[in-house]
Design a protein around this nucleic acid. Structure first.
Length: 435
RNA sequence: GGACAGGUGGCCGAGUGGUUGAAGGCGCACGCCUGGAAAGUGUGUAUACGCCAAAAGUGUAUCGCGGGUUCGAAUCCCGCCCUGUCCGCCA
């Protein structure tokens, strides 16, 4: 949501910024609605004032046992006009809100300009991509050869874009999530949260998925929505609230399933578990003071990168360009992990500074100690990181072509009960526990 | 799912049609008192939007949400949501 007062003050700045996202000029229509609305509102409030005053007089007269018929008729005569004005005001306010709600966040000056993902800017590169002379199969081949990844059985019960894993891979997925949560809570100062996975309209409106992106979401028959990311649940923790500034920043993390309809991505990543209707993700959300959100954004990105560093996975961090950046974000870093099987980098995390965009939509404010006025908070979210894709990355980067096995990364060993390497099933237990 | 009871300001809690944005209490802030503190005492203490160049000021709305009745609604009527308790079912 946008600050209508700020748009009034400097409409050109908004149009100029939106143009970077490829939008046409928006503010004339907005300002027209705003001006009309306020004119109607002023007239309406004036009539309300008259009504209230006269009604009080009527009360006073009747209290003394007098006759107030004349005044009562006067007020009654105003009713039609008032109803009309109320109706118009509501219509205009609705139109204005709809217009504003459908417009994306303003971009940070720092976000590079560009048309699509090809114009994203690389910020840094960490680790050396393994070139295995195309000896590394893709994760689904590795997983099926291990006998631990089963797309057919998943499809039998759920259709496409679902995966079933068992044994070592199932455990490794769990180990990854545990490792990430422990790192964020113990080392990075995030508070672990176990949030609802089903939410109502207003929560998704707050984070910006609604009203524009309903088709990307799953909806239940009880009119709940399945969260597409824990960003929704975690950010909405501060909806409709006023925090004290000494409580900032607040940092939350959660490990949750995420559900996405993937409407519009037909044909993309159809094999394997890169793009699923359901996947696990460890999410980080920061609730920040406006002046600290840029710094917090860098910090959060570091936290996500730290997970990959500990897993010793090569990655690069890119700053998304104006044409690729998400609706609610003013600046986004994507972290892409190296996948030897695909011989390319793939997104494994996305860290966004949403500024006050979501905070306005969900009325999340703070107050400086002693101050009377409230201000909108800044909200940030980032994957820390996508668990399914992290598993894929481990499988391909830790693949051993000599036996088709997958080594367990050092940091995961404590979570794997002594297993050092996943080996194709059918191999003896003694071998599987090799150490 | 069934039955009952409820949803009022940061919190507790009064209020069943008329100067009620809302008594009283607690909490909080500031002042007085004190050597200092406690106690006591005084004042203040919601949010959003409009008008105004702005401050001051002033207006409007908000007592779960939406609609209705009325000159006037926290109070009456209808619908919805939520919470609590008991019963049923159940991971």
């Amino acid at each position: 949501m946008h600050d209508i007062a700020a748009i009034r003050k400097d409409p050109a700045a908004y149009d100029k910024n939106w143009a970077r996202r490829g939008l046409s000029v928006q503010t004339p229509a907005i300002l027209k609605l705003d001006t009309d609305r306020r004119a109607v509102q002023t007239e309406m409030q004036d009539l309300q004032n008259q009504r209230n005053t006269k009604s009080k007089e009527i009360g006073a007269i009747k209290g003394k046992g007098g006759d107030a018929t004349t005044l009562m008729n006067e007020v009654a005569a105003m009713k039609e006009r008032m109803a009309e004005l109320e109706q118009r005001e509501a219509t205009l306010a609705e139109a204005l809100n709809q217009h504003l709600a459908s417009l994306p966040n303003l971009l940070d000056d720092d976000a590079p300009d560009g048309k699509d993902e090809n114009d994203n800017k690389e910020v840094r590169k960490v680790g050396t991509p393994k070139k295995l002379n195309s000896q590394t199969p893709e994760h689904f081949d590795i997983g099926e050869a291990l006998g631990m990844m089963d797309f057919e059985t998943a499809a039998k019960m759920s259709g496409s874009r679902f995966t079933l894993m068992h044994s070592g891979l199932a455990r490794m997925e769990r180990a990854l999530a545990q490792f990430m949560l422990d790192t964020h809570t113990i080392e990075h100062g995030y508070t672990e949260v176990s949030p609802p996975l089903l939410v109502r309209d207003n929560a998704l409106y707050g984070t910006g998925q609604l009203p524009k992106f309903a088709e990307d979401l799953f909806r239940t028959t009880s009119d709940h929505w399945l969260i597409p990311t824990a960003e929704v649940s975690l950010t909405n923790m501060v909806a409709d609230s006023i925090l004290d500034d000494d409580m900032l920043p607040r940092r939350y993390t959660a490990h949750t399933p995420c559900f996405r309809s993937e409407a519009g991505s037909a044909g993309k990543d159809t094999r394997g578990m890169i793009r699923q209707h359901q996947f696990y993700k460890v999410e980080m959300v920061s609730i920040s003071h406006p002046e600290q959100s840029n710094e917090e954004h860098e910090r959060m990105t570091q936290c996500a990168e730290n997970i990959l560093k500990k897993l010793e996975l090569p990655f690069r961090t890119i700053s998304l360009c104006s044409g690729d950046i998400g609706f609610g974000s003013r600046k986004t870093y994507d972290i892409e992990v190296w996948l030897p099987g695909q011989d390319r980098y793939r997104e494994i995390s996305s860290c966004s500074n949403c500024g006050d965009f979501q905070a306005r939509r969900m009325k999340a404010r703070f107050r400086k100690k002693g101050d009377k006025d409230t201000q909108f908070l800044h909200t940030l979210n980032g994957s820390g990181v996508a668990v399914g894709r992290a598993l894929i990355a481990v499988m391909e980067n830790y693949y051993d072509p000599s036996d088709g096995g997958v080594f367990v990364p050092a940091v995961l060993k404590p979570y794997m009960g002594g297993i050092e390497k996943l080996l194709p099933q059918g191999v003896s237990k003694a071998q599987r526990a090799v150490g």
